[in-house]
Design a protein around this nucleic acid. Structure first.
Lengths: 199, 199
DNA sequence: CGGAATTTGTGCGTTAACGAACAACTTTCT
DNA sequence: AGAAAGTTGTTCGTTAACGCACAAATTCCG
C-alpha cells in the first residue's frame, strides 16, 4: 500500500518508521553476510533490536519484509522524476536506467545471496510497484495530450512494460556475460521502443 | 543513578536504551557542529527523532543530558579493567592514561565547543564518577590485603585522586602548550605517586 | 522599553513496542 | 525412529514514547 506518496492523513508515527527501518536495515545487512534462505527471524530481531511481536505487527513473515525492501530502491525514483527539469527525459522509460544502475551496484553484495526464492519474491514485487508507477505516469501524460487514445489500453501497456523490464532484468542478472548497465538499458529500449512508437 | 553496574533487576527496556542513546548521540553530533550553549533542546529532539516528553522522562534538562554523556567515555573502562589479565597493571592509576588519550582524540572535535559552563558540568560529573570507581577499586584491593589500613582513609584517597586528576586534565586542556597524552599522564603520576607510596 | 516570538518544562489521553509465554511445526542429532 | 532443540506465529497485560496543547520563562527586535 501507500509508499509515502499521497499527502493525505497524518504522517506515520515515529515509532512505526523506526521499527520498520530497523527491520529493513537489519535484513539488508544480514543478506550481505549470508544467504537469504539461511536467515532466521530471530537474527533479524536481534540485529534490529526489535521485539518479536513488533515484527509481526508490520510484516506477515520474512518474505513480506524482503518484499517491502524495494521501497528503499524504487521509493526515491518518483521524487527524481517529478523534480526533473520538465525537460524531455520523462518518457515511459525514465525508470529503467536508474534501476539497472542500482542493481549493478548491489550485484555482488546482496543480490546473489537471495537465491531462487528470494529473487522471485523481489521480482514479483518490483513488477507490482512498477506497474503502478508506470500506469500513473502514463495516465498523467495521456491527460496532457487531451485523452487521445485508441491505441493500446494504458493499463495493458503498463503491465507490458513492467513485465518486459523485469524479464530483461532477470536475464541480465542470470547471464554470465558482463554487460554494462547502459548496454542492457539499450537492449531494453530496443525491445519496447517499436511498440511504443506504434502507439 | 546506577550506571549499569549491578547485575540486580531486569535489564533496561529496549525503548529506554534506544531513546537515551539517540539523545546522547544527537547532542554529541551537534556539539561537533556548534557551541554547546547555542544548542537548543528542539534541535536535539529533531536530530534524535524523539518526542519532547520522552526527553524529560529521562533527563531534567540539557545540562543533565550532557552530564550523562561521559558514561560513553568512562563506561567501557571498568570492563577493560576487570578483563585485564589480572597481571599487575591495576594500580590506582589504571584509568588516567585511557582518559587522557580519549580526551586528546576528542579535543578538536567537541571539547573546545563546550564553553565554560559545559566544561564545568562535565568536569564535575567526571569527578563524581571517578570517585566512585576509584573507591570501589580501592576497597577491593584493600580487601585482598587483609584490610591492612591505618593510613589515609580510602574514601578520602579516592576523592583526592579524582580531584587531582580532573585538575591536571583541566590544566592540560586549557594550556596552550602541546603536551602528549603520555607526558601529561606522567605528570599526573609524578604528582600523586609520592602520596600513594607513603601509604 | 515593551510586544512578539521562541524556548522551556509539564500534563495527559492514545498507541506502538515490550517481554514473556504459548502451541504448532520443522530441524537436528543420535 | 524418536527425543531434544530450535523456529514460527500468536496472544496479552504492561509500559515507554507519542503528539498535542499549555503556561511560564526567556530571547529577540523595533
Amino acid at each position: 500500500m501507500g509508499i509515502r506518496s499521497m499527502p493525505a492523513g497524518k504522517r506515520t508515527d515515529r515509532r512505526v518508521a523506526r521499527t520498520r527501518k530497523a527491520l529493513l536495515d537489519a535484513l539488508h545487512s544480514l543478506i550481505c553476510e549470508k544467504d537469504y534462505d539461511s536467515i532466521v527471524v530471530k537474527e533479524i530481531l536481534d540485529r534490529a533490536d526489535v521485539g518479536r511481536s513488533a515484527f509481526y505487527t508490520h510484516f506477515v513473515d520474512k518474505d513480506d519484509l524482503l518484499a517491502h525492501g524495494i521501497h528503499d530502491i524504487v521509493g526515491g525514483l518518483p521524487a527524481r522524476h517529478s523534480q526533473s527539469d520538465e525537460s524531455r527525459n520523462d518518457g515511459p522509460l525514465w525508470f529503467s536506467q536508474t534501476i539497472f544502475e542500482h542493481v549493478d551496484r548491489q550485484r555482488r553484495t546482496t543480490i546473489h545471496r537471495l537465491g531462487r526464492r528470494g529473487a522471485a519474491i523481489l521480482h514479483q514485487r518490483l513488477n507490482q510497484v512498477l506497474v503502478k508507477m508506470i500506469a500513473e505516469q502514463l495516465d498523467t501524460e495521456a491527460r496532457k495530450q487531451h485523452k487521445r487514445d485508441g491505441g493500446i489500453p494504458s493499463d495493458l501497456l503498463a503491465q507490458y512494460l513492467a513485465g518486459t523490464f523485469v524479464l530483461v532484468l532477470n536475464w541480465w542478472i542470470e547471464s554470465k556475460s558482463q554487460i554494462s548497465p547502459s548496454a542492457v538499458n539499450d537492449l531494453f529500449s530496443s525491445l519496447v521502443m517499436p511498440v511504443l512508437a506504434s502507439n
